[in-house]
Design a protein around this nucleic acid. Structure first.
Lengths: 346, 346
DNA sequence: GTTAGCACTCGGAAGTGATGAGTGCTAAGG
DNA sequence: CCTTAGCACTCATCACTTCCGAGTGCTAAC
C-alpha cells in the first residue's frame, strides 16, 4: 500500500500535512516550494499533488484553493512519515511542575492529569478511570440503606473508592453485614477482581458443602456487588481549550463534538478499545465510524500499575493536530500517572 | 423604586420582556401594539419606551432597531411583573417520568436531576452535591495508604460517599484504625457534622482527662478528617443544549461561558450563596459581578432532607430565559429530589 | 521528466443601492 | 395635557456587482 508513493511524493505529502497543521489554511503548490526547498518548481509539485489527490491523500476544498489532507492522508502521515522525537525536557518539567500536588484523591489525580494534558497540548484532555475489573481489591464495606437496598463501597489497592447500590432479598442486620465485610476483607485482600470473581464462582459451586450460613451469604452478596462493570468513567478536561482551534468556528461542528463529550458512551468505547493495545494509540476522525467526532483525532496511552494496564488517558483535538508534539506528551503523562499511582499510594 | 413606573409603563415593559424572551429579536413600538392590544398607538408606546430607556430598563442595540431589556429590566420583570403559575401537570409527569430510575447512587441521582432540568428547560442543568457540613453522619472508615497517608471514607445518612486523603504523623496499624473507625461509628451515628465538630472540640478540651490513648487518637484523626470543606461538587448537565440558543452564535461569548463551566469555582460561589436562602432564587447576569456569565441567568432552588437544606440545583441559561416556565420546573425538581433522597434512602 | 507560460476558476473582500423596520420630533386633535 | 398621525431620518441587512489574487490544469518547450 505504501509502495504507491515514491520518495518525492512522500516528502510533498509530508510538507502539505505539516504546513496545514501549522496554518490551518489549504496549502498550494507554490507554498510547498517556498517553505521546503525540494529543488522542484511549483508546476512539478502540482503534478505530484494531482496524483496525491487522485489517490485520496489530499483534497482541495474548491477549485482555486490549495489542498488539505484527507483522513487517509493523516493516517499515512502518522503511520509512516511522522517521526516522534523525545519529549523536550522543558515540556517535561512543565508537565511535572503542573502535576506536583500532594494529598489528592485518585480521582482528583486523574482529573488533574487531564487538565495537564489539555493545558500543554491546548486540545481537550481525556481520562478514563480504572475499570473496576482491572483493579486490585483492597477493601469492601456494606451499609444498609432501606429494606432490601444496600450500599456497597469498594476501595482498590491504589486508593480508588467506588460505590454502588444493590438490591437484595437477604434481610441482614447491620452487624451481620459487618461480619461479612470483615470476612471478605480478610480473605480477598490483594487479589485482583478477576481472581475474586473466579474464586466466587468456584466457591459457589461448592456451596452445598458450606455449613456457614454467613459465608454463603457473603458469597451471594459479593457476587451481586461485583456483577457489573463499575468504573470506566470518563473525565473531559479543558474542552473549552479546543474552541480556540479555527475548525470550531463552524458552530454545527462544535455542537456535535460537545454532544459527543456529554454523551461519553462513544468515548468510553474508543478508550476501551485503546486499552487493549500497548503504547500510544491514534484514532483519526471516523477511523471509528463515529460521525460525531468527524474531523477529530484522539491520541491515547494507557496508565498501569505493576499488575498491568488499568486505565487510559489522552488528548482529543482536530485531526489537524500537532501529532509530533502531542504524542510524546501523552506518552509521558501516562507514565507519570502510572508512577505516581504506584509509588505514592503503596 | 418601583414607584417610578406607572401601570402603563409596566405593561409595556412586560410586553417587551416577554416578546423578547419569545423571539430573541429587538422589539419595536409597532410590535408591542400589534401583539398586545393596549389601546395605544405606536407613537405613544414610543414615548413610553423612550422613558423606559432613559430609566435604564431597556436599550436599543442601534438606532433603527427595537429595544431589548437590560439586566435592570429583567430584574424588574422578575421581581414585580412576573407571575409564576402552577407547574403544568403534563410537565410534572414528564419530569417524574424522566426521573423514575431505581438503584442509583446518590451522585447519579443528582446528576440525573441535572439532566432532567436541562432536557425540560433546554438550558443547562446545574447541581451542587451536598456540602459535607450539611450532611448527617452515617459511617466513617480509615484505610492506610502509605506511611503517613490515610484514606478516609465518609458515608452520609442519605448514602452519599465521599473520601479524602489526609496526612498524619500518628503511626497507626490498620487494626488500630479499625478500632478507631468502630468507635467513631458507634458514638457519632446520626449526628450532623456540625454537631460532631462541636463535640470533638469539647472532648479535645477535656483531653487531659482522657486515659484512653486510642480515644485521643480517634479525636485527633477525626478532627483532621473533617477539617475542610468536602463536597460541594458541581455537575453541569446538558451544557450543549444551551448552544441552541441564538445568543451563542457569538463565539466569544460561548467560550466565556464554557470556561466558566469548566472552572466551576464561580458557580460554586453562586450556588453557595443561594443555599442560604429559601425557595427559588434568581441571579440575573452580572447581578453577581461575574463577567463570565454576563447575559446569563441562573435559577436555583435548594433540596433538603428533614434536617434542612443540603444542596442546590438549578438551571443556567441566557438572561432572555423563559422564567415563568423554568421557575416552577426548578422548584418542583428540587422538591422531587428532596423527597426521593428522603424516602428511598431511609 | 521538468518547467515556464497561460487561460481559467473561484472564493473573499469591497462597494453599491434598495428595502424596511424602527426611531424621534413636531404639530394637530381630543 | 395627553395622544396620535405624519414625516424625515437612521441604519442593519440583503442582493448584486466588481475586482483581486491565489491556485489550478494543460500545453508546449527545454
Amino acid at each position: 500500500m505504501s509502495d504507491e508513493l515514491n520518495e518525492r511524493s512522500r516528502r510533498i505529502l509530508e510538507a502539505i500535512v505539516e504546513d496545514y497543521i501549522g496554518t490551518a489554511e489549504p496549502i498550494g503548490s507554490r507554498a510547498v516550494t517556498r517553505r521546503h526547498h525540494l529543488g522542484l518548481s511549483p508546476a512539478t509539485v502540482r503534478n505530484v499533488m494531482a496524483d496525491l489527490e487522485e489517490m485520496g491523500y489530499i483534497v482541495s476544498p474548491h477549485t482555486s484553493a490549495g489542498r488539505i489532507p484527507t483522513e487517509k492522508g493523516y493516517r499515512f502521515y502518522v503511520d509512516t512519515l511522522l517521526q516522534v522525537g523525545q519529549l523536550d525536557p522543558r515540556q517535561k518539567s512543565r508537565i511535572e511542575e503542573y502535576y506536583r500536588i500532594d494529598g489528592l484523591r485518585v480521582e482528583e489525580r486523574l482529573r488533574e492529569a487531564g487538565k495537564v494534558l489539555s493545558t500543554i497540548s491546548s486540545y481537550a484532555g481525556v481520562v478514563m478511570t480504572p475499570r473496576f475489573n482491572c483493579t486490585v481489591f483492597r477493601h469492601i464495606e456494606f451499609l444498609k440503606l432501606s429494606q432490601g437496598r444496600l450500599l456497597v463501597i469498594f476501595v482498590s489497592r491504589s486508593g480508588l473508592v467506588q460505590n454502588k447500590v444493590i438490591e437484595t432479598d437477604l434481610s441482614l442486620t447491620q452487624s451481620e453485614l459487618e461480619h461479612i465485610s470483615n470476612y471478605l476483607n480478610q480473605t480477598l485482600s490483594g487479589l485482583s477482581i478477576q481472581e475474586i470473581k473466579a474464586k466466587i464462582v468456584r466457591e459457589m459451586a461448592e456451596e452445598k458443602a458450606i455449613y456457614d450460613k454467613l459465608l454463603s451469604r457473603a458469597l451471594e452478596l459479593s457476587q451481586e456487588a461485583m456483577s457489573d462493570e463499575l468504573g470506566g468513567q470518563v473525565y473531559i478536561e479543558g474542552a473549552s481549550n479546543i474552541l480556540e482551534q479555527p475548525e470550531f468556528k463552524d458552530l454545527e461542528r462544535m455542537k456535535r463534538l460537545f454532544r459527543a463529550f456529554e454523551q461519553k458512551s462513544l468515548l468510553v468505547e474508543l478508550l476501551d478499545k485503546s486499552q487493549l493495545a500497548r503504547g500510544v494509540q491514534i484514532f483519526i476522525g471516523s477511523d471509528s465510524e463515529y460521525r460525531e467526532i468527524e474531523g477529530c483525532s484522539l491520541i491515547t496511552a494507557n496508565y498501569s500499575s505493576s499488575r498491568g494496564t488499568i486505565g487510559t488517558l489522552g488528548v482529543i483535538g482536530p485531526s489537524r493536530m500537532n501529532y509530533s508534539q502531542v504524542i510524546p506528551v501523552v506518552d509521558y503523562t501516562a507514565r507519570l500517572v502510572s508512577q505516581i499511582l504506584e509509588t505514592e499510594l503503596e
